[in-house]
Design a protein around this nucleic acid. Structure first.
Lengths: 258, 258
DNA sequence: CGACGTTCTGGTTGACATGACTAGAACCAC
DNA sequence: GTGGTTCTAGTCATGTCAACCAGAACGTCG
């Protein structure tokens, strides 16, 4: 295979005439990090590789971009193929990865997307159980579960992104159902940020402002330990302009080591 | 200058379980949005296209990614080729763009990078003046200056990114010199966020906390209008964990129409 | 049925951040 | 020196938010 490459020491030369087919060709893929909350912990949907390099290892679902679709459409299609869910609004692009040799077969540049689902328990059941699984994100982050390619780094970046999105967007409501208690929503923040939030203060931040949540009038059934039943809410319309809960600026460790 | 490079992919092809050529091939480019502050306004470095599609129009500098370099390295190389500046730390990837037809010649997926320079006046002078120019970002955002390809959207995304980075990172210090006055630094925030900041409060936010800035003991020469000379500072080490200045959450329009 | 534990809801308080404002200090031009 | 300009320092009121406390509404167990 022969490739021709130009070095533009002068801009005019770089943009000058050329034959497009002479430039290095890449395969472009889209990988989707699918997150959900299950039993109070953040989980990620992984698929087991059937063949090729890293055979048998777990990986993020993904696939090749088609020439006649946008990157967003490719991500949406991949999400639908893997989970059957059509939720384009939850898809967020967070990074591109093109290190040489990240795929031993060829030059592949992949674009990472983040998807948040409410409950993928049935989704995983619908797929071949041997081929897809929900695993705690912590197992991926700490290396307990090794992923194919550079997917561990991609997951790390996705988690970092969702931590930021949690503060500035309404992505938190994507983790819970159509109706939810404030305790459920609080668990989302606590699991993703790894913090403890005061239930009373959390409630005040949410209900005080405009319309983050809308009470439905119904109440959730208390857990096995009893307790006062919590009110059920549905998402309001204020989430489009920033989130109500903010991470406290760490005033604890000053001069700490990064 | 044109270089012809041959890449032998025979060993890799032997590893593959399928023929890579069966998958759609894309050209992958890296486009760099180079920003700087000049005369109190945010400026962007643009190059004029010599020929090909959009001939004669202004565009973001960029070029093809090489198979043996990472995306970050490609961006760093493009920045060095355009400006002669070797400043990898300021390079931030902010998005990938792969809409079909964004380049009429072929399928091109580009990865956008953001670069912040202290002063590119000499840089532009070093390049052919007819081929590169610094223009106010506002001219690009409001459509006064039309860019080639989908570069206007890319610039929009880059500006939105730098507005966020300004709040959570130390990118503000990249706009000013190695030593600077607080008024200079304040101008960076005011220009990018489009707000007016009280000089006294700005100062208090900066000097009160740990070590955002370190006084050098020297003083800047007052401007032509006179005034008390401002103290010169150099960046401290606290910027690595968030910025000191925060955008006020707009409490003005409540219940506004989205 | 009543006591107890658990969870949700509402309120108060104090520390801290921040916007608006005022006054003084240090320079330039005339 | 006088006036104008800019930087620096301080005060005050307001708002935010974490911490804490008390009550309300359930389940369960005796």
């Amino acid at each position: 295979m022969v490739m021709v490459m130009m070095t533009n020491t002068t801009p005019a030369a770089a943009l000058a005439t050329y034959d497009p087919s002479l430039f290095p060709a890449f395969a472009v893929t889209v990988d989707v990090v699918i997150l959900t909350m299950s039993e109070g912990t953040l989980q990620i949907l992984l698929v087991r590789r059937g063949e090729g390099p890293y055979e048998g290892m777990w990986a993020i679902p993904g696939g090749f971009k088609r020439p006649n679709e946008t990157l967003d459409e490719a991500a949406k299609r991949e999400l639908a193929e893997e989970t059957g869910v059509d939720a384009a609004s939850l898809l967020t692009q967070f990074g591109a990865y093109g290190d040489p040799g990240r795929d031993p077969r060829m030059n592949v540049v992949t674009v990472g997307y983040l998807a948040v689902l409410r409950d993928v328990g049935s989704v995983v059941a619908g797929t071949d159980a041997a081929e897809a699984a929900l695993v705690p994100v912590s197992d991926v982050l700490n290396g307990t579960l090794e992923l194919a390619f550079d997917h561990q780094r991609i997951v790390r970046d996705a988690i970092e992104r969702v931590r930021v999105e949690l503060e500035v967007t309404g992505i938190a409501t994507a983790f819970v159902g159509t109706t939810f208690t404030l305790a459920e929503l609080r668990t989302v923040y606590e699991a993703i940020w790894g913090v403890q939030l005061d239930a009373a203060n959390f409630r005040r931040s949410i209900v005080a402002d405009d319309d983050w949540v809308i009470p439905t009038g119904r109440r959730a059934r208390p857990g096995p330990a009893g307790g006062r039943p919590a009110e059920l809410y549905r998402p309001g319309k204020a989430w489009s302009r920033g989130g109500p809960i903010h991470r406290l600026h760490r005033t604890d460790e000053k001069g700490a080591n990064p």
